[in-house]
Design a protein around this nucleic acid. Sequence first.
DNA 1: ATCCTTTATCGTATATTTACGTTATACGAT
DNA 2: ATCGTATAACGTAAATATACGATAAAGGAT
Lengths: 114, 114
Amino acid sequence: MTRSRADLFDAETVAMADFARAMSHPARIAILRRLMEEGAQTAGQLVAALPLAQATVSQHLRALREAELVVATEAGTRITYALEGARIRHFCHAFQQALGTAGVPTEAMRACHI
Amino acid sequence: MTRSRADLFDAETVAMADFARAMSHPARIAILRRLMEEGAQTAGQLVAALPLAQATVSQHLRALREAELVVATEAGTRITYALEGARIRHFCHAFQQALGTAGVPTEAMRACHI
DNA sequence: ATCCTTTATCGTATATTTACGTTATACGAT
DNA sequence: ATCGTATAACGTAAATATACGATAAAGGAT
């Protein structure tokens, strides 16, 4: 990957790839799904819920923070994570727009019963 | 990643992560977007459209094939790639369902003008 | 038969990711 | 002040991903 990325592809394409990459590990998907289902959770709660060492979960949380898919708020010694709802929705929508209608019969085709 | 994956996470979570991983490189996003916008393309057309060597594009196409996001059909010496529309739609929908409504005000909240 | 085109595969160098033990930091409780 | 808890950051080994030249395989054209 010598020096590819922003130089070689347009910004929108790179942004979509970065978003997908942030989601490209089961642990990170599991974290996001859990935050969605249970609401905000502390790092410790997430560690307890995942089959990985604390250091590893912390590393995945950093990746999600850096991709701005979650926000962390400190309260004393605890750190609570919550979804960046707006940003996640934005990208789900972008994917839906860009790719989510692939091969869907058009109005005209359906009108003709093709 | 010593031996994680299917052992440690549920199938749905792994499937979503695998889909995201298949999309996690700008070249692969660019390929998918192009197939969406221009319709099916030969490998050669995709090579011409991307700032990467033929071998590299071929490798990205294999990744997309293995993730079943595209299908290849041979015609003589040419190989034409097309989107696996149904599968892509399925996952765009799955992400929308699982994460795409994060932080959206509920009916009840909106009714109360919160 | 020979040559050219098209595309996949091989080999390989480099970069990135993942996992985890260990250590550092910072807060709260005693 | 000391100790325990909660978390991030460091260091590092192993696995994967990325890029690309070179080569192989298979059709088509002459």
